[in-house]
Amino acid sequence: MPGSVYGVVRRRVAVRLAVGAAAVLVIAVLAAGVGAVAIPLDDTVAIALDRLPGVSIDGDWPASGETILWKLRFPRIVMAGLVGGVLALSGAAFQGLFRNPLADPYLVGVASGAGLGAAVVFLTGSSLFAVGGGLLPIAAFAGALAAVAIAYLVARRSDGLPLTTLILAGVAVSALAGAVTSLLMIRSDPSLRPLLSWLLGGFSGARWNHAWLILPYVVPGAVVLLAYARVLNVMQLGDDHARAAGVNVERTKIVLLGVASLLTAAAVAFSGVIGFVGLVAPHVVRRIWGADHRFLLPMSALVGAGFLILADLGARTLASPAELPVGIITAFAGAPFFLFLLTRKAR
């Protein structure tokens, strides 16, 4: 029977992804049980179940416990998972698109553009600033997309989009936006702590409505990127081979660049610039399970989601009652693990 071997491989891939998804779920549930404020496990379970449709539990838990779990901790875990997944998925797509292991979701200027947008709003319209609310995420989102658009317009040629030029343009746009951000900060009053927290990334301000706001970007964007997995596999052979195999290379570049940037911009708008997840998660998956994008893309998203939920768990508990910037945790925990992985033989 033709395809039977392929069928087995496919089933194995599906099982791995299912296990990965289950692992993310377990991490999320465990993370929900721990926080800066200790809430008894039975209360936690009761408060969570009580919210399920059709379930009503009579409990005598304190109202503050319900607020902490439902309005702060649960949405925070969901946002960390969404953002981690999005950054890792975009990172994997960029690494595949640019055929460059150093690529990450911020390669073409998303981070610096978002940072500049945030800094402008913060330093000019201070009263409009909100931790994950108000004008700041809109400005960050717009700044991120503007930076990518500039890099794209500079690099574009009549006969296509040379990716090396795009990377260089992205680096230049990043440098410029970063310099303007630094200038704005150095010229402003030193009361910059809230802006610094945003720039270093974090989920202290994560709320349910943020998750609802980014889902319209995340779901269709992720579907598009996953649908391009097979094309990305072909693209690894080079533009000419891909063209010969019937791939519309130029359209692929634009779609992947646009969608991955849009996803990253949506993630960054609320959570700030969180480093390392988008770079490392795809490499971890590639080292352990290989570089087939049909598996690499979804598994990277799962690894990124689990990793960032755990990193945020550290951010909100390690220095309690204070918060740590989650980007510091991702680098502290991720970098040594990544170095360890590099010493192992690649698959």
């Binding site: 902490i68 702060l72 009263s127 600033f129 702590r193 927290s197 204070a322």
Partner: peptide, 30 residues
């Protein structure tokens, strides 16, 4: 100066908040 956990704020339930113009704590549903 530190960024304090929002969970801790809810638990310790301040009776007065003194906020700068940068603060949006009064419009945050949480």
């Amino acid at each position: 100066f530190e960024q304090i956990s929002p969970e801790v704020i809810v638990e310790r339930d301040p009776e007065i908040i003194i906020a700068t113009d940068f603060s949006t704590i009064d419009t945050d549903a949480a």
